[in-house]
Design a protein around this nucleic acid. Structure first.
Length: 790
DNA sequence: GTGCTCCATTTTTTT
DNA sequence: AATGGAGCAC
């Protein structure tokens, strides 16, 4: 234990900070110990930046430079924040809970709720997701007499969002940015859209970043309060911040200038949502005194993987100079799978997963399949299911985007915030209760004329009297029901209020009556939502409905990814940012898919796609596979697939075909074996010699494996939690079931052998194995890395 | 005002 | 292939 460093004060419980520093390399330690003044950390993939951030915060706390509540740490996902907080808690204890650590969106929502009144909002404002925004835009277009089929609400919303991201308000947009008719429409809609959101006491995702700036600009004393509070600011994934994020953090840091940003320009992959790479490139211009530290030692991947990644990213012109290096092993070559169709691709990947699981002992949760677009997951789900490989899908159509779930959420939003117009319009006739379009139109236009919220119009008998008689009573009932539920809110459990409301509205009943597979599925989802509410209530101190709604609107897909479920992870490359897996399959390596958007083929776009590919490659620790299909269904139509240009950019020295041959690249004229050719396994060779490729004959592995219970989880759908524990047990045993007397195995050190005996249970299971060259050995199942030679 | 049928659109990537 | 919307018939 080194206590000689005067910069490193003692910590609680014997283990002090220097023990942690000893785990760091020089550059990392420098970053950790740099407390005051602006700091730019360029952190290459797998260079241990999370560790640096964690220790840096721990160090700030240990050296009493700041209280936990004075540190603002902005992460890219809630999951990242959660994990970092846990690690810090492990080092310095419960104090970690007082850190301001989370995503931009969640932390600034917190501030906005506290300060809402200063910018003309109420604390319980609703948060509109993109879907809500689309519907608002659509409504506005219709009110302006435009046809939403001709002018796509999504397109207008996208433009508004881009404007917001660049901090262009509706007035400025109208005066300076109108060049075409679509701009003109956008300008009109933008203005109304903003007013409508305000009237609805609602903010969209962009507002959550912009409104704080507005708040700070108009209320310098409030800005000062937060400047004083946040003595130290840290921002992770800085290469993916947008203009608003850049400005708001700059404002907050202006006083102390203790701002530390961490990022990697090579991993900037979110420009489509306004991320501006120049934020990180020009950090040193903003802070003249900034220190820059580059972390270039990679601890994650094998040399082969790193070499491949390096060859790819070198093709980009725009990038900061840096060279990643590693002390890790060379590792196995990367395997390229060449497939006839997407179905074959999925099957082959599933086969390979089974193979490495059985023969090399990789557990399923050490394996990930990464793709460019969510829709690609489908075929993989099918193939994995068919082969009894458990998987976990991250992202896709998320649970909270399902219509029935959104409906119920809208009911709840309406309880918290009656002015939430989007919620009113969504549920007032859901299920159908005889309040039709026409009545609604009348009432909504009254609301517009009087400039009051729709809810007020609906609550006012004078206005309601204007509409179709039978609808009047229905409207009254609806309003009363909602008011009653709202009054219940403080007195009853949230689940009970919700269940009650669903019962009275007959929302669930409609699904039961319909009684189709689909409607029952919807009912299930609603029940699952009730579970989520109940769980939220039980796990929080002050679980308000408002807090629940906030949480569900700000969760990201990766946030509720399960780490300890023994299941293969399926997700987009975007979602995989910041994660790592021993084994990675990057699939769908085809033109128009990865890279995508070859239509205009702008070099900037291609460079971003390339960075995305770089991110995909650098997720892998030990084994990496690429695959592509020569034909693929798109919009229900079979289209030829052309091998991705990116496969011509990888270093051919580290990539092999399945049969071990060198891959063919564009400039390369040598023939390669046709896809789908099988070669025999040769397990007598040591692990790294050659590359035993090829898919085993379809049924050899599959039919001999015992039938096991498989649980498939779709992320966020709730089924993940309950069964996972059972799953763990059933899988561990299933996996080791193969290791029984009579089976031939291969041991890393002792070579080939035969199992003679199996003793003990569970974690203590031991195997007696006879090795040809080393005789009889007794091995703990847990530690012996045995491959089966069957 | 509701419900059914046909058709059009969808697939980037996400807080 | 699947979903959701618009248009039409009741």
């Amino acid at each position: 234990m080194n206590t000689s460093n005067p910069n490193v004060p003692d910590l609680f419980g014997g283990k002090d900070m220097s023990d942690y520093l000893a785990e760091l390399n020089e550059r990392q330690a420098e970053a950790v110990l740099h407390a005051d003044g602006p700091l730019l950390i360029i952190a290459g993939a797998g260079s241990g930046k999370t560790r640096v951030l964690t220790y840096r915060i721990a160090q700030l706390l240990a050296s009493k430079k700041a209280w936990a509540s004075q540190i603002l740490a902005l992460t890219f996902t809630n999951k990242a924040a959660r994990e970092m907080r846990e690690r810090i808690e492990h080092i310095i204890g419960e104090e970690a809970n007082r850190l301001w650590m989370g995503t931009f969106h969640s932390l600034f929502t917190r501030i906005l709720r506290m300060e809402a009144e200063h910018i003309g909002f109420q604390a319980d404002f609703s948060i509109y997701d993109s879907d809500d925004s689309d519907r608002v835009v659509k409504g506005i277009l219709q009110e302006l007499g435009m046809d939403p089929r001709e002018i796509k609400p999504k397109q207008i919303r996208f433009r508004i969002s881009s404007a917001k991201n660049q901090m262009i308000g509706p007035e400025e947009y109208a005066t300076k940015w109108v060049q075409s008719s679509i701009d003109d429409i956008t300008a009109q809609v933008y203005k109304i859209y903003n007013n409508r959101l305000k009237q609805s006491n609602a903010m969209d995702f962009d507002d959550l970043l912009i409104k704080p700036i507005e708040l700070f600009e108009t209320h310098p004393e409030i800005l000062e309060k937060y400047q004083d509070r946040f003595k130290y600011i840290m921002i992770d994934e800085y290469q993916d911040t947008n203009r608003a994020q850049y400005i708001v953090t700059k404002m907050l840091a202006a006083k102390h200038e203790n701002i530390c940003v961490v990022g990697d320009d090579a991993q900037s992959i979110y420009s489509f949502r306004g991320a501006d790479i120049s934020n990180i490139l020009s950090f040193k211009d903003d802070y003249a005194t900034a220190t820059q530290i580059s972390l270039e030692q990679n601890y994650r991947s094998t040399q082969s993987i790193l070499k491949c990644a390096d060859a790819v990213i070198k093709q980009n012109k725009k990038q900061l100079e840096k060279t990643l290096w590693t002390q890790n092993n060379k590792g196995n070559p990367i395997t390229l799978l060449d497939n006839f169709s997407e179905r074959e691709e999925a099957q082959r990947v599933a086969d390979h997963i089974r193979k490495i699981h059985l023969t090399e002992g990789y557990r399923f949760n050490e394996i990930a399949i990464l793709y460019r677009t969510n829709y690609q997951s489908r075929v993989f789900e099918e193939s994995l299911r068919r082969k009894d490989v458990p998987y976990q899908l991250v992202g896709g159509v998320s649970f909270y985007q399902r219509k029935e779930v959104k409906d119920v959420i809208a009911y709840l939003r309406l309880l918290v915030n009656p002015n939430d117009e989007e919620a009113v319009l969504r549920v007032i006739n859901e299920p159908a209760r005889g309040i039709g379009m026409k009545s609604l139109q009348t009432l909504v236009s009254t609301a517009r004329v009087k400039e009051i919220p729709v809810w007020e119009v609906l609550s006012n008998p004078v206005y309601v009297a204007d509409v179709y008689k039978p609808a009047q009573a229905k409207i009254r009932e609806f309003i009363e029901l909602m008011n009653e539920s709202r009054e219940q809110l403080p007195h009853k459990a949230l689940v009970d209020t919700t269940r009650d409301l669903l019962e009275k509205t007959g929302y669930v009943k409609q699904f039961v009556e319909e009684n189709t597979a689909e409607s029952l599925g919807r009912r299930e989802n609603v029940m699952e939502l009730l579970n989520a509410i109940s769980y939220f209530e039980r796990s929080r101190e002050n679980a308000s409905l408002s807090a629940f709604l906030q949480e569900v609107s700000l969760v990201s897909d990766v946030d509720n990814m399960e780490e300890n479920v023994p299941a293969v992870t399926l997700m987009t490359v975007h979602a995989s940012k910041g994660l790592e897996f021993p084994v990675v399959f990057v699939v769908g390596m085809e033109e128009e898919l990865f890279p995508m958007g070859g239509r205009n083929g702008e070099e900037a776009d291609i460079e971003e796609e390339r960075r995305l590919f770089y991110v995909a490659i650098t997720r892998a620790q030990k084994e990496l596979y690429f695959s592509f299909a020569r034909s693929r269904y798109r919009f229900g139509e079979e289209k030829p697939g052309i091998r991705s240009r990116f496969l011509d950019e990888v270093d051919p020295a580290v990539v092999r075909n399945e049969n071990g041959s060198t891959i063919k690249q564009k400039s390369d004229t040598t023939d390669h074996r046709p896809s789908g050719s099988f070669i025999e396994y040769d397990y007598t060779k040591p692990l790294n010699a050659g590359y035993p490729g090829a898919t085993p004959p379809p049924d050899s592995a599959a039919s001999s494996s015992p039938k096991r219970r498989t649980i498939y989880t779709r992320n966020g759908q709730g089924a993940t939690n309950a069964p996972s524990t059972n799953m763990g047990i059933s899988y561990e045993s299933a996996e080791t079931e193969h290791l029984k007397p009579g089976v031939f195995v291969m041991h890393e050190k002792f070579g080939a052998g035969k199992i003679l005996q199996r003793e003990g249970q569970g974690a203590d299971t031991k195997l007696v194995v006879f090795f040809q060259n080393h005789g009889q050995k007794k091995l703990a199942l847990k530690f012996a890395k045995l491959r089966i030679l069957s």
